[in-house]
Each structure stands twice: as structure tokens, then as C-alpha cells.
Amino acid sequence: MSAPNEVPPLVARALDLSRRRGFITATRNETGRLLAALAASRTGTLAELGTGCGVGSAWLSSGVAEDAHIVSAELDPKLAEAVQDLFSDTPSIEVTSGDWSALEKHAPFSLLFVDVRDVKRSVDLVADLMEPGGIAVLDDFTPSYTWPPIYEGRVDVVREQWLTDERFIAVEVMVAPDASVILATRV
């Protein structure tokens, strides 16, 4: 296992691809370590919506159990191909070209990393993809210390929906002083 300031080799390769492709918003290491820890507790099928350069999937892979499978969808076909090449020696990861719906055939998921803004806004869509007890991880929130949650001077209705939907037990977790995720377990 790598030290907290180091990243696993596959993550390092995905971060390198991200830099070469000009992506500056890859999954943060703090979120990645959380993904790895959660993946270690899961079996079955794990998924990432919004592959980008594969950083999130690489973090999931660094913690996943041997019998688990990771699927990921990337909208850009050329980028999906580059990430498939990146993961060619990692049989537990399957990258497909397409939007989030390309992964529906793999559902239900025991862990779902949602890094796509439009999907994050649809609790119903994500709920339908999850197995009972499955965990959805929603990325890219700025911590809010009030209720209702406020972002840029307005009620953050997306966060409010996730934290109050009866199909999930959800919590906002800070991963850094300027970043948080929502963990939502399907009941």
C-alpha cells in the first residue's frame, strides 16, 4: 500500500494521461483514497460514470476485491480508447464508449462513482442503478455548513435532494477543506 502522499502505480499512469490530455479536474487524491477504501468493502459490479482519463476507476481498482468488476463509460470515443489502452493489463476494469446509459446493462451496482453533473442531478436515475445496500459516491461538492445547504448564495437543491431522499441514507463528507462528496447508501 502506498503512503498517503503517494499514489498507486495505475493511478499515477491515469494522472499522467490526464496531464497529457489537458484535464485539470481529475479525481482528487483525497476522493480517490476514499474510493479505494469503499471499493475494498464491495463485491459484484462497481461503476464510474464519467471516466475522463480513468483516474477514478484507477483509484477504485487500487482497493477492489479480486472478485469485483469495474465498468466505466466515457462519452468521448477517442478518450475511451486511450483509457482502454491504459487499463489493458487490468482485466477487472472495462471501459466503454458512451454516455451513462451504456452502463445500464451492468446494473445493479454495489458502488457507483458519479462524476457527471447531469446524472448527479437525478436521484431517481441513480436509485434505479443501485443494488440494495449499494453506495453512490457523488463528487465535486464544496462543503456547506448550513441547512439547507447553500452554494454560491443559493440553496443547493441537488445536495438537498440527495441528503433527504428516503431511498438513501446519505451524508456529506469533507475530503479536504475545500471539497466534499456525498455518500448515499441505497436502502
Rank of each mutant, 00 (worst) to 15 (best):
E166S: 08
A107M: 04
L103N: 05
E30F: 08
G52M: 08
D89T: 11
R19Y: 04
I169V: 15
L138N: 02
E30G: 01
W162I: 10
S110A: 11
A170F: 05
V119D: 02
A179F: 00
K78A: 13
E81P: 02
A102T: 11
P77H: 05
P108V: 06
V114K: 08
E104A: 10
L49C: 12
E131R: 10
F141Y: 14
T45K: 02
L103K: 04
E166Q: 01
N5D: 14
F109R: 07
A68S: 14
R19P: 00
A37V: 14
P8Y: 07
V83I: 06
L46W: 01
V55I: 03
A12K: 15
R167Y: 05
R20Q: 15
V83W: 07
L163A: 12
T45G: 04
S72I: 11
F109P: 13
Q161F: 05
R28W: 15
A40N: 10
P8E: 13
A68W: 12
F109L: 07
S62V: 08
K78N: 05
P143K: 02
V119F: 02
D139V: 10
V126R: 00
A136Y: 02
L10Y: 02
S18F: 10
F168W: 02
E74L: 04
R42D: 09
P149A: 12
P108L: 01
R33P: 10
M130N: 03
T45P: 04
R33I: 07
D89W: 01
I70N: 00
M1I: 09
V171C: 14
E74I: 10
L103E: 07
G98C: 05
H106F: 09
E160N: 12
A107Y: 09
A82Q: 10
G63H: 07
E94G: 04
G32L: 11
V11H: 07
G63P: 03
V181A: 05
S92Q: 12
A68M: 11
D89V: 03
G54C: 12
G56P: 08
V95R: 02
G133K: 12
V11E: 03
K105P: 00
S41V: 13
P4M: 14
G52E: 03
A68R: 06
T185D: 01
W147S: 05
T27M: 13
N29D: 15
E172Y: 01
V181I: 08
T146E: 13
G52D: 05
G56C: 12
A184R: 08
E152N: 13
L129I: 03
M130D: 04
F141R: 10
S62R: 11
D165E: 09
Q161D: 14
V7I: 14
Q84F: 03
V119Y: 04
S97R: 01
D178V: 09
D118R: 01
M1Y: 08
A184K: 06
L125I: 01
S61D: 07
